[in-house]
Design a protein around this nucleic acid. Structure first.
Length: 205
DNA sequence: CACATGATCGCCT
DNA sequence: GGCGATCATGTGG
């Protein structure tokens, strides 16, 4: 089951004038999408209230040829089945016996690629550490594997809203925590808002 | 069935 | 910088 979101993340997407993405946005190049997701709002509706956060750090995971991806070498298991869905769905997994990580699935159905949501900023004066990591982001929004496979574009309880205003300054680095992946571990597939306090300096290159 | 490990975090030095 | 927590999942027998 999902859990209650942190009340500090309550916000009103309509107030901010946020709009959804068209499906097409999620069907193209995963690396480009990972970059474009910086500055968007990831949100969950719970008991008819919206809770959300502005994404400031992402990583692209590229499917069968990417040794760091769960879908490496064409793997297809029940856990990662949502990665094979059409772009715009959510893939959530449980790891280290205690943390959940949320991904936005990309590309057409049958191609298992996704963008990991690594860090975000809450609305208002939410502490910058509250969402500074993929596990913390899921915890604060109360998202668990119960949400894996849900569609972000069907007017349901989960949504990714388009960025408002101009795009932030983007930094790029290799991905975090994938040292087991050989050559792929060095690929420049991590994107972050250079000016966000929710992105730790030490993780930048 | 048995067992090794991980797309992390917080606490320690 | 290092380490332990803690368990679902994947792999192999």
């Amino acid at each position: 089951m999902n859990s209650d979101p942190d009340p500090r993340l309550r916000f009103d997407p309509q107030d901010l004038g946020l709009t959804e993405f068209p499906r097409d946005f999620f069907l193209t190049d995963t690396t480009r999408i990972a970059r474009e997701i910086i500055g968007t709002w990831f949100a969950r509706r719970h008991k008819n209230q919206w809770y959300g956060a502005r994404i400031v750090e992402t990583e692209a995971y590229l499917g069968s040829t990417d040794a760091a991806a769960h879908s490496r070498r064409g793997r297809r298991t029940p856990r990662i089945e949502p990665m094979y869905q059409e772009g715009g769905h959510l893939y959530v997994f449980f790891v280290y016996g205690m943390h959940h990580c949320a991904n936005v699935v990309t590309r057409p159905a049958g191609i298992a690629e996704a963008v990991l949501l690594r860090a975000a900023e809450g609305p208002g004066d939410t502490p910058s550490k509250l969402l500074s990591g993929p596990g913390k982001l899921c915890k604060a929004l109360g998202i668990t594997v119960a949400s894996s496979g849900m569609d972000l574009l069907s007017g349901g309880n989960l949504c990714l809203f388009q960025r408002i205003g101009k795009g932030p300054d983007i930094g790029i680095s290799k991905r975090i925590g994938v040292d087991y992946a050989g050559e792929a571990a060095g690929w420049p597939l991590r994107f972050f808002d250079k000016n966000s306090p929710a992105v730790s300096k030490s993780k930048n290159i």
